[in-house]
């Protein structure tokens, strides 16, 4: 079961993580990178975007920051789905299957898609290095339970396969609190922090 680190306390107390590195989940990258400008009006994104910016810049001075390819893929899908969803609302007679055509032939689509993908690439070129994990794929499939998200399971399995000094996940997703193995869960989510206090699993 994870030990939880309250991200606010970490920054305020100017502490370091108990691990050498940390991994980021999709929601962290989405809230931090904010590819659709949601922080302009959405309460949670507006709240988390500046906090994650501060946290990332603080941690990057002391720790290595990683991600995995399945998270990158999920983030890519998020950008693709969101971009198409917006265009469907703004234009007539657009279907999700028009993605390739729009990308090639529509200047407005191409411009905004291009900018979002440039930011996508920068996330992994400059902030979160893609870690090549060597998770046992057979064990991965056998251990997967249908009530869990498969990408979460893959990501969690990748992190857990690593030595202790890499086992820290930065996420807002409560599902990670239910995983059985020992790792550190770094979060701003008050619900997770409250559960950890209840279970005496709050590291900081």
């Amino acid at each position: 079961m994870p030990k939880v680190i309250n991200a606010e306390n970490l920054i305020q107390q100017k502490e370091k993580l108990p691990t050498e590195a940390f991994f980021v989940d999709t929601n962290t990258i989405v809230y931090l990178n904010d590819p659709f400008g949601e922080s302009e009006s959405d309460g949670l994104v507006t709240e988390l975007n500046p906090k994650l910016s501060r946290l990332y810049n603080y941690l990057a001075n002391h720790h290595k920051c990683y991600c995995t390819i399945e998270i990158a893929f999920e983030y890519y899908h998020h950008i693709k789905y969101g971009t198409m969803k917006n265009f469907k609302k703004l234009r007539n007679n657009i279907e999700y299957s028009d993605f390739k055509k729009l990308r090639k032939t529509d200047t407005e689509f191409h411009d905004i898609w291009n900018q979002r993908i440039r930011k996508f690439k920068r996330a992994f070129e400059k902030r979160f290095v893609l870690y090549n994990s060597h998770v046992d794929l057979e064990k991965l499939i056998i251990s997967y339970k249908s009530e869990n998200d498969f990408v979460d399971h893959l990501f969690y399995s990748s992190v857990i396969s690593l030595p202790d000094q890499f086992r820290c996940i930065l996420t807002y997703d409560e599902d990670f609190y239910n995983y059985a193995e020992d790792f550190y869960l770094l979060t701003f989510n008050p619900k997770i922090i409250s559960l950890a206090k209840r279970d005496d699993k709050l590291y900081m």
């Binding site: 659709f36 400008g37 302009e40 917006n86 411009d111 905004i112 900018q115």
Partner: peptide, 10 residues
């Protein structure tokens, strides 16, 4: 620049 594109789209 992306923040401007996003704001105009929104």
């Amino acid at each position: 620049e992306l923040s401007i594109l996003n704001a105009r789209e929104r």
